[in-house]
Design a protein around this nucleic acid. Structure first.
Lengths: 115, 115
DNA sequence: CTCTTATACTATACTTAGGGAAGTAGTTAC
DNA sequence: GTAACTACTTCCCTAAGTATAGTATAAGAG
């Protein structure tokens, strides 16, 4: 596995294009504990706006990372779940958790630096 | 290592705040092959604008992930390098590379979907 | 002596992404 | 009848990112 690479088709670059959007990794993390409905995601990701949530879910569905299933219940429900490709993000999420713990250990305050 | 967590101090969330900005992971990737000057980074990350490059480098320096060293040569040079904390991102970068390779394997075209 | 090159940036104007609030439709509970 | 639930969309505004030009300083080419 090579990190460095300058091509446009560089694996790291391709991964970056998926995960760089705000909220993207957090949405995927939620889906690791099983399929979720729109409103469940909205509640879990406390401050996300419905607009951004819709956009991200659509984006992830288009890339084949999640599936969307609509049920004609009353009121209607929609379920989002990870595809096998989406599940491949597990080691990435784990690496994020690991790094986040390092930040906490080193007492680096991530939020309160800018004035 | 637990992925799921709803607190504001969740490790995944903390990591997301660092890496979610555009270009951030790619800048860090460049620094894994050793310290680099501003112009070297600019050339390596072909399409980055100087404004964003400066902003990202400043951001990463403030968080303690990279160091900045200025030399009074003519013309002046600046060297950026990873700190020990910055190096902790290695497994994250590797996971990104791994995931990028999965995308290539599955022949998912990441770029040419939107019209 | 002027012209170009190099470095590490700022400054400016413009475009896109994201945030916040409100609205929509169909049904059901109070 | 009014409020609530569900899964969104639409509008407007600000923040983030892009593209391009400019700054200071000095070496080297012609």
């Amino acid at each position: 596995m090579e990190i460095s690479c300058s091509k446009d088709t560089c694996p790291v670059k391709l991964a970056a294009e998926i995960i760089e959007g705000k909220w993207t990794t957090l949405i995927i993390r939620e889906l690791f504990s099983g399929k979720k409905r729109y409103s469940e995601l909205q509640r879990a990701l406390n401050k996300i706006s419905p607009k951004v949530l819709s956009a991200r879910l659509k984006f992830l569905e288009e890339r084949g990372l999640i599936t969307r299933a609509v049920f004609a219940t009353i009121p209607p429900t929609t379920e989002y779940a990870l595809t096998p490709i989406g599940y491949k993000l597990e080691s990435l999420l784990l690496a994020m958790a690991e790094f986040g713990n390092e930040l906490i250990k080193k007492e680096i305050n991530v939020k309160i630096i800018s004035p």
